[in-house]
Design a protein around this nucleic acid. Structure first.
Length: 265
DNA sequence: AAGCTTTGACCTATA
DNA sequence: TTATAGGTCAAAGCT
């Protein structure tokens, strides 16, 4: 997407962001490798000329889109020339940097560690003397993209909620309901239900369920899906969803990134 | 009855 | 070593 905005891509692709929410931005994580564990460590979204809101977003969501995948080749840092996104299996992504070594993770916990995505609020970026290399990781998205994340196609079970000091908004903690899947996500919402941040941790070790359109078995969740307003109302502002860059150069890391890395391992 | 959310308590890492 | 913050657990209740 070197010359086309994300919204343009959406429009040109015929993708209706509201009707294809499960398919377009779906908490994407790589297919499993031979060991059953995906290889997906870092990601560096390129800046999207979309929103002026100081938010970021989950690159994983973009990756779930074939549209974005096809255009992700341009997601190389204009400053470093590097694309810190490692292929799932060291080969799935042709743009993988050869210098980035892959290590097969023997267990799900390790997978979680290696696949910790994180969130950086762009406001922090603006407050801190963040080098461009890191600022490049901020991607702004329209509000509808964020809305989609409440329904990313995977089954999530909420296992906790916490009011954290760093944010005035509560965080909700979700686990993937798929057996043996270690994927988690943390959703930060405003008091009126607007998602302001989504953090994905760990990758799904399974394909996206086909029944996720309307999982009747999970009544509560299904109701939320059917009534998105209960989770995410029409948002006048973009919200942030972004990554935890598991392997960002130390000198470029911000405290939050470090914290998330610690969480990952 | 199964699976979900809620929510206070508990655990752990960090300063 | 201790206080604090963030993340997770698990019982209870709901759909």
């Amino acid at each position: 997407m070197s010359s086309t905005s994300f919204t343009d891509l959406l429009a040109s692709s015929g993708v209706d962001p509201y009707e294809q929410d499960e398919d377009f931005l779906g908490g994407f994580f790589p297919e499993t490798t031979g060991s059953g564990l995906p290889k997906f460590k870092t990601a560096q979204p390129s800046p999207l000329p979309i929103s002026q809101s100081s938010r970021s977003f989950a690159f994983s969501e973009l990756l779930d889109s074939p549209l974005l995948l096809s255009s992700s080749h341009s997601l190389i840092s204009p400053t470093t020339g590097a694309f810190p996104f490692q292929g799932f299996n060291g080969s799935d992504f042709p743009w993988q940097l050869p210098s980035q070594t892959q290590t097969q993770t023997p267990n799900a916990a390790s997978a979680l560690q290696e696949e910790t995505y994180g969130v950086q609020d762009l406001q922090k970026k603006q407050e801190d003397p963040v080098p461009r290399e890191f600022a490049d990781r901020q991607v702004k998205v329209p509000s509808y993209m964020v809305s989609r994340n409440s329904n990313d196609g995977y089954g999530w079970r909420k296992y906790g909620q916490k009011q954290v000091k760093k944010s005035e908004n509560p965080r909700s903690y979700f686990k993937c309901t798929y057996p043996n899947c270690v994927s988690k996500k943390i959703v930060e919402t405003t008091s009126d239900g607007q998602i302001t941040e989504i953090i994905y941790k760990g990758g799904h070790n399974h394909p996206k369920p086909e029944f996720t359109k309307r999982p009747s078995s999970s009544s509560a969740n299904a109701r939320r899906m059917l009534n998105p307003s209960s989770v995410v109302s029409e948002q006048s502002e973009s919200s942030s969803i972004s990554f935890d860059y598991g392997e960002v150069d130390e000198e470029k890391e911000q405290p939050e990134i470090k914290r998330l890395k610690r969480e990952g391992g």
